[in-house]
Amino acid sequence: MIRRKWITNIFYIPAILLFLFFVIYPFIEGIRISFTNWNGYSQQYKYIGMANYLKMFQDENILTALKNTLIYGVGSTIIQNVLGLSYAILLNTKMKGRTLIRTVVYAPVMISGLVMGYIMYFLVQYDGGALNDILTALGVAPIDWLSDGNRAVIIMTLINSIQYVGISMVIYLAGLQNISSQYYEAAAIDGVSGWQQFRYITVPLLIPAISSSVTLNLIGGLKLFDVIQALTKGGPGYASHSLSTLVANQYFQATNAGYSATIGLFSFVLIMILSNIVTTYFNKKEVYM
């Protein structure tokens, strides 16, 4: 009916130009750099074929970073969704003080992950840390929480989860409020128990919310960077690096830009594959009412 409507397509040209210049071009450049031994600043470098890729698949540190990235991603996702849904169910009752709970749980989302990391340092530091004060009061020897790589990874997963659980909470709360109470009334008349109502009414109707929340948490956890920089910088040694911090580390500390670009591409492919698997899974599960 309306002709020349395509003329409004000019509206997105600036955006496309930005993407081409600052995402697509660097992305392709990244592929090229990954085949070189560039150090990040020198004018001279050589093409070294697949050497960076071969190195990557034999590198112990990559294996650790990959394992950590999965723990950061999957661990945060599980904790945030279980806690977030529980909080949302609690807030969906008519109890007093709901707004206060929502405010306190959501407020840390506003804080930069880096600053949150530093705040948490006051809890986990060895000398005079808040956690160790409790241990001392209980007569237990204080623990150097971040000195062990595996423990540091778990602690940082917990910190990330507690900080961002508010996101899952508000997504689930919105989802719960969208479910018509008629379903529950009908189920109650049919004598369906509370757990079964949850399993057969709440969960299926929450699939869109679960899908959004899981995808967001997974991507957020897999990209984890700020907290690690604040607390361990990937240490002790390379034990708590994620792929993101390792990319930065290899470029700026190890001046190994070619290798860093290779790890960057690897982390990109990993996040793409995992988030696609999750999205496809939930799309199949979605019910239409």
């Binding site: 992305f27 450049e29 470029y251 860093s260 960057g264 982390s267």
Partner: peptide
């Protein structure tokens, strides 16, 4: 979906 840091170098 692209994590900013994966294109950090280029």
């Amino acid at each position: 979906m692209i994590p900013g840091l994966s294109v950090l170098v280029p």
